[in-house]
Design a protein around this nucleic acid. Sequence first.
DNA 1: ATTCACTCGTGCAGTATGCAATAGTTGCAC
DNA 2: GTGCAACTATTGCATACTGCACGAGTGAAT
Lengths: 161, 161
Amino acid sequence: MQHKATSEDVVTALLSASRVLVGVAARSLAAVEGDVTVTQFRSLVVLAAHGPMKQGALAGHLGVNASTAQRMVDRLESSDLVARRANPASRREVLLSLTAAGQEVVDRVTESRRRELQTIVRRMPAEQRADVVDALRAFADAAHEPEPVAGTLWGWSLVGD
Amino acid sequence: MQHKATSEDVVTALLSASRVLVGVAARSLAAVEGDVTVTQFRSLVVLAAHGPMKQGALAGHLGVNASTAQRMVDRLESSDLVARRANPASRREVLLSLTAAGQEVVDRVTESRRRELQTIVRRMPAEQRADVVDALRAFADAAHEPEPVAGTLWGWSLVGD
DNA sequence: ATTCACTCGTGCAGTATGCAATAGTTGCAC
DNA sequence: GTGCAACTATTGCATACTGCACGAGTGAAT
């Protein structure tokens, strides 16, 4: 069983594993669910990862239309999760940044996700963990650690970014 | 490096791998994008996997409100991807089933996804593939192959189901 | 016959999404 | 300096997704 793994087998295993990973991500977001939508959360993650940016840049990272970002930021601003401030250098730009509350949402979700994954991992025999790391690393390498998934629908920036 | 994998390492590797998997899924859906929305596609997948069912059942599988399913089916019916037919046994039920066109959409996306994963897997050294299978299987097992992810937001039924 | 549970359908409200058009800002060429 | 082109944010319009609440038809149990 160790020697004859067809790529079909691998693909099947990958699909199976992604079901789990996605379930984890979904639950971790639901866990903090304080009205924060998926897309809204994606925005928060991008801002947390890359720091303050223009609205257009955010739209680019999310792979959505500028107008979509526009109105999402409207709502995030209302919820006090994101702050708009004028760019002193150029009056036509608006700089977005996370508020403390926004940062806190990101932290809570991330924490929840890591905790749940830890729980699963601890159920695995310790000797096998090293194999998982190697295997997944090999997979990710083979995949090229992909282009930033332009225009993604899911923006799994969620899962890391 | 083979002997001391902390669960932190594993979690990190998992997060990294999920980025890849999600990217694949996103692209495979975009590839066929003929107006079909994410949610709509999820519906098609569920129907393809479990066969004809009532609207309420579909809503349950998707983890959405019955009214959401209701109107989504309205649109899928307009697009001729799903057919409503009365259940002869009980006049209060409506049975949903995939049309040929609907089945074809599912097939195309699935095919695209598998093909892309295959491409990645083939880039990996063959000896390592067996490890990946074992590792991912162990992970999925440890995760319990989760409860149908009730109320999922992402419904990665997408990825298999 | 009445009551209760199940199903589907609809109205209402809020969010997300894209395309197109508008308006203010900036830089560059002339 | 005037004017044009590019950049940025914003708004209008149309559609889709989402949940909650309510209504209507159907079926089953008492």
